[in-house]
């Protein structure tokens, strides 16, 4: 009964539900990867991605007012991940599982794999507060304004965090390279 109700709601009778369905299919993998890089655990990231999209679905009535849907989704995902990190503080002792490192394509050489691992390790060395803007700006290609929207902070704060994050990343990368 409840399933039918939800499905009916998400079905043809609910255009916003369909819209969220489309957004989920479009951003599912990228949001998962983003959340995964924030929390550092695959299973947890899958759960949090689902939770984030459920929140998007629950707030779908606001979708028509949202100017930048991608930034809005990432804001919900960021909040979901940050809240989870705050709740459990797991980021303090979470190991970075070798098995969790993204599977690379067939043509990737050992050097590329090593380079990617170094970058991932350097990213992980950053606090989530700095990791998130750097990922959004440099990996996902967000503008400063979009990063601000996704993190719920001002553009000035984004510039400051990005500047610090870049310096931290440089230091962490150099340390990882020396190991």
């Amino acid at each position: 009964m409840i399933i039918e109700m939800i499905m009916a709601e998400a079905g043809t009778g609910d255009n916003l539900g369909n819209l969220v369905g489309g957004l989920f299919e479009e951003h599912r993998s990228a949001v998962f990867a983003y959340v995964y890089r924030l929390v550092g655990n695959r299973e947890w990231a899958e759960e949090l991605t689902q939770e984030a999209f459920l929140r998007v679905y629950d707030a779908r009535a606001r979708l028509p007012e949202v100017r930048n849907r991608r930034a809005w989704i990432y804001r919900i995902a960021t909040n979901t991940a940050f809240n989870a990190l705050k709740r459990w503080r797991r980021f303090l002792w979470l190991p970075w599982h070798e098995a969790d490192v993204a599977p690379l394509g067939r043509s990737d050489s050992a050097e590329q794999v090593e380079g990617q691992t170094l970058v991932e390790q350097a990213l992980l060395a950053l606090a989530p507060k700095y990791r998130a803007p750097l990922l959004l700006y440099s990996h996902y290609g967000f503008s400063v304004g979009e990063v601000a929207e996704a993190l719920g902070i001002g553009e000035g704060a984004v510039k400051m965090r990005l500047s610090r994050a870049r310096e931290m990343f440089r230091g962490a990368y150099q340390r990882e390279s020396c190991r």
């Binding site: 599912r28 990228a30 299973e43 990231a45 899958e46 490192v101 993204a102 599977p103 990617q116 970058v119």
Partner: peptide
Amino acid sequence: LAGLVDPRPGAAL
């Protein structure tokens, strides 16, 4: 950072 390969979600998602 742009060249990082994203991990793919598993069957749980």
